[in-house]
Design a protein around this nucleic acid. Sequence first.
RNA 1: GCGCGCGUGGCGGAAUGGCAGACGCGCCAGACUUAGGAUCUGGUUCCGAAAGGAGUGGAGGUUCAAGUCCUCUCGUGCGCACCA
Length: 938
Amino acid sequence: MNAGGGERMLRGSMARRQYPFHLIEPKWQAFWEGQQTFRAFNPGETLPVAHPFAVRHQLGARPVTAKELPSKFYVLDMFPYPSGAGLHVGHPEGYTATDILARYRRAQGQHVLHPMGWDAFGLPAEQYAIRTGQHPRVTTEANISNFKRQIRSLGFSYDWSREVDTTDPEYFRWTQWIFLQLYQAWFNPETQRAEPISTLKYPASMEPGGSGAELDAAALEAQRREYRDARRLAYVSEAPVWWCEALGTVLANEEVIDGRSEVGGHPVVRRPMRQWMLRITAYADRLLRDLDTIQWSDSLKEMQRNWIGRSEGALVDFRVAPESGAAAGAAITVFTTRPDTLFGATYMVLAPEHGLVEALASGAQRAAVDAYRREIAKKSDLERTELAKEKTGVFTGAYALNPVNGARIPIWIADYVLASYGTGAIMAVPAHDTRDFEFATRFELPVLQVVEPPAGVDWKGYVDDGVAVNSAGPEVSLNGLPTPEAKRVITEWLAARGVGRGMVNFKLRDWLFSRQRYWGEPFPIVWRKDAAGVEWHEALPESDLPVLPPRLDDYKPTADGQPPLARAAAWVNREDGSRRELNTMPQWAGSCWYYLRYLDSTNAGRCVGREAEQYWMGTDGQAGATPGVDLYVGGTEHAVLHLLYARFWHKVLFDLGHVSTPEPFFKLVNQGLILGEDGQKMSKSRGNVVNPDDILVEYGADAFRLYEMFMGPLQDTKPWNTKGVEGVYRFLGRVWRLFVDEASETEFEQALTLTEPSAQEALLGRLRVGSSVQDVVADASQLRVLHACIRKVTEDLDGLRFNTAISAMMVFVNEAIGWEVKPASVLRTFLQLLAPLAPHVAEELWDRLHRHLGQVPPSLGYAPWPSFDPAFLVEDTVEIPVQVNGKLRDVIRVAAAAAAADIEAAAKAAPKAQAFLAGKTLKKVIIVPKKMVNLIVA
RNA sequence: GCGCGCGUGGCGGAAUGGCAGACGCGCCAGACUUAGGAUCUGGUUCCGAAAGGAGUGGAGGUUCAAGUCCUCUCGUGCGCACCA
């Protein structure tokens, strides 16, 4: 906190501080740190006897067992990338919400784990290093320390003893270790889970003494190695990847948006390179299914479902017609979700990149095909999608035979068919597929109806279910069958004939896991050459972990396009002749498992200890424990990538027995975006960025926290309005004045102006609680106001409705400020309600209130959460609206327990209602006790 | 194009099918004050002097009663986007 800045603000736009937050906030932050108030304890730890958690739960003096510990509550924030720009107002929105929950649950007696850390590998620090030669470690540490200062200034109750940093060798040692688990595992399709690679069964020909006995031992092992390496969960692929020249690295599919890099918006091109991949596709089905077992928003689940993109259909083999040149007789397999429309296929389309195109292009069409392919190859992906309005393609000159009826159909190539989805080839059914219809129209290809839509709907371009027509071949007929039935019949027929089979296809691709960067985790992998000169890879032993990156003077890729690690020849070339892997892992790696490291962040022997993992993930038999993280809060920008990758890793670790829950994050909430005051997305170029530091100097952390929550529902997108901060700031000022004696306040203010900032905190002692605060019994109306507030705040915090919880506290204060005598017990309870949201001012007033009463203040953070007594909320009489024909006409006050007949009589007697009853016949009376009465007249 | 949200005062927003607009901002009036951009009190959906009428994007519907449920429609935000 910058006291000088605060003084400047006082003389500037603000006339007067509502209360001395600038002294209170650092004071309590220092107190919490000194007391380690928010430490969470693992089973087996010995708690300090004086720690408020130990006191509350009567633990301490000896190691605590998991059974003795209260029920766990793991509330997690998405940890930030510590950028040089510092915190923006979006970060603390989620952090404030989780902090409120953490404090609330502690008060309720739960054992709260609320950690924070740093996702600190990443491109900006590396690019800065390239420009300046400054080691990314230096930049990263400076940024972390700035972020930490900012986060601490907001008074969040993190257990900093569990802080993690993905760039710390003691952290990424375990990131590398998890990679080795992936490397040493395969996905067994029979058990549908990952198993150690040692359980992999080899084909008979590769078994020693099998039909491959003619091979020598080395050749056999080479074969087995190739077979094995092709099945690992971490494997090497030569497939085309997205290369970004500007960033000097490849990117994952997910990091490429419209043909440009997600980071920086640089152009990317498709290029074949040797890359590490992770076999996430093996988990597609489980990643999809298990969404049903977790509490995420529907929209988020839907995004993940779309990304996984499951579709059921069939593979169908078409034969290339005999006269079609070099490829004659070859099979072209297509994937279709509509095998029932097979009789309507009037042409086929292959992706321009399809492997058979070369052999198919014949005669007169050869030149056209080559020209088209050259044209497509030149286009960036961006152009390909932009130009998608008009479909293009060329005829190959070849024909294929439809397996159902032998029909001879032309084979085209077109870029509307993607090489990377399905088989890269389709059968085109223009009558019942929009894209095929557009293409067929453009190139005047025949359109043949095979589905009869409901009456009145045009069959041309009809893509939904109907009844099959014109679908009879020599051996099979679908005519008259509804679409689902037709699909089933034809798929069975294709399978029986050996020309097709049912198939489930996914959009999800394997995860491209290597990057040509310096500032990331090195792979624990080396490369060797066998006797035949074939390169193969080998895992380093666990004892070699962590594999540290080498020191470099220059962080750029080498002149011949090698990653920067290649510059460290002494590091790359090992004494035994092997060479280290030059790639590093992507930034996602560290964030895939950080929530596990928090559970046991200093464990030197395991990524997470079993007992700690089972306690905090709720699988050790605690009654009602949530399986996994209880609440995970973060932005939607991670809806697919981080959350899908982390679920994938977690499932692998689960299969291999390292964690005990199938899903990591049980409940997840996305906080909404905070827009600038102009309603536009905050950005430097618009000049509408709000810096939390500025708000803190002027209004303090408590007002900032309160405002972030008061703006509206956590999940909603909402605009910032600094005037709104003033509103909650004034509220805190009223809370302050509820307690503090006016005369002492004035005296304090005057002393403040005469005292050096460094000595000001001592002046807080001059403030006294006002004489209207007395140790007296509260009256019924005061208790009603208090208990209504307890109920509302409790229910709203449970439902994450922070905005309405704050509103309820405002209602309480607006009432209480008018009381001539304020019962200390009522104010004390109110401070407990306020504490999770505005902890600093609550602590200060809590402390003063107890001293005022001559008591030693107990720990506010661990004081049991107040419960409300419905008895105090009961009112003798209630006000209920009187409607006539459904319209509000009057309001009557009746006894809460009034009989229906009495209510009816009172309603009829209500003066304003009577005016509408006069001369009418009463037809019906509807009475909802304590709610309303409706008189129906005609 | 497809999928998922969301449309309520001047603004942010609140309302288990039961008094629409809680709470806050802003605005208006008043009190205190040398002063107010501090604080306190009252008012503030629209039309109307009032009585009263209208009102939750629009049009229908269900219901004694609809911001809330149903159908259609318009607008808007987000996600995916030639995924066969």
